[in-house]
């Protein structure tokens, strides 16, 4: 047996971790509290922690006078379509690569996995030229179409399908099911856990994506939330502090709530796939 750790060491660890936890979460708490403060209070020296007189004015203004409702809807549409696309296309290809034999299979596998690490900053300029020439600049399809099929999902799905028993497929074949029916009726229903992990990661990535929507969305009607927030808080546009913090809350809080609801599955997904 290892020697027992002295009680003071354990207590010290708890104190240390608690202080760290306060430091890590304080910016969020301050953001939420700040979003219901008035502009004047936010400019006060020294700053206040609890709001003097809480008000929802900032939110009312974001949604009633600025177009945040529109940006919110845009973000939801883009993230949802990208997620559904990846779930469908990646599971199809992932299954084919894991369980079926076809010519050029290894080439396809090498090509897809080889591009896993290509950074977005390398492709955004030609992608912009392409999207403009396809007539999709400044439209929602321009925001989601280029991201419907990402290599990471193929990697994840192939990995998961390889863990399923191959007997399932043989059983389907013996029963006379066609190859596509085997995928649709037998495999798809078993992909739940992998779908959940990929779905959450993809939705999150798309919701927080910034560079591409910044490049493609030129007018307010196609802004996503991060683009709107960034453009309203930099340069000459930074007017009202309360509005900025309320805007940050609108970007962060919906995902934060979803995350807290599904956190267990989510964190396990991160641990097993290793990528955020």
């Amino acid at each position: 047996m290892l020697e027992k750790r002295p009680a003071w060491a354990t207590a010290l660890t708890y104190v240390l971790l608690s202080l760290a936890l306060i430091a890590v979460t304080a910016p969020f708490i301050w953001m939420v509290l700040g979003s219901v403060k008035t502009d004047a209070e936010l400019r006060q020296v020294p700053p206040t922690w609890w709001p003097d007189a809480a008000t929802l004015d900032n939110y009312t203004q974001l949604f009633a006078r600025m177009n945040f409702a529109q940006y919110f809807v845009n973000s939801v549409i883009v993230a949802t379509v990208v997620t559904v696309g990846n779930l469908l296309f990646c599971s199809m290809l992932g299954y084919a690569l894991a369980m079926l034999n076809f010519r050029f299979k290894n080439l396809v596998l090498a090509l897809v996995l080889g591009t896993l690490m290509i950074p977005g900053v390398v492709t955004f300029i030609p992608l912009y030229v392409l999207v403009v020439n396809l007539g999709m600049a400044d439209t929602l399809p321009g925001l989601f179409v280029p991201f419907l099929a990402a290599p990471f999902g193929v990697f994840l799905m192939r990995q998961f399908v390889q863990g399923l028993p191959a007997d399932l497929i043989d059983a389907g074949r013996v029963d006379g099911a066609g190859e596509l029916a085997i995928f649709g009726r037998i495999i798809l229903p078993l992909l739940g856990p992998a779908m959940a992990t990929l779905g959450i990661l993809t939705f999150l990535g798309s919701w927080n994506n910034f560079l591409w929507p910044l490049v493609v969305a030129q007018n307010e009607h196609s802004y996503t939330l991060p683009v709107a927030l960034a453009l309203y808080t930099t340069g000459q546009n930074q007017t009202n502090y309360g509005l900025m913090l309320a805007g940050a809350c609108v970007v962060v809080l919906p995902l934060l709530i979803v995350f807290l609801l599904f956190q267990r599955r989510f964190i396990e997904g991160i641990a097993t796939t290793g990528i955020k």
Binding site: L88, F102, V108, I118, T123, L127, L130, F147, A149, E179
Partner: peptide
């Protein structure tokens, strides 16, 4: 089997060729 594999693979590969592979070379 081979036909099914290509049917399953083609949507991804088409999008992937146009929006990932092509831009890398174009860049």
């Amino acid at each position: 089997e081979s036909r099914a594999a290509w049917i399953l693979a083609s949507p991804f590969l088409l999008l992937f060729a146009v929006f990932t592979v092509w831009p890398v070379f174009q860049s």
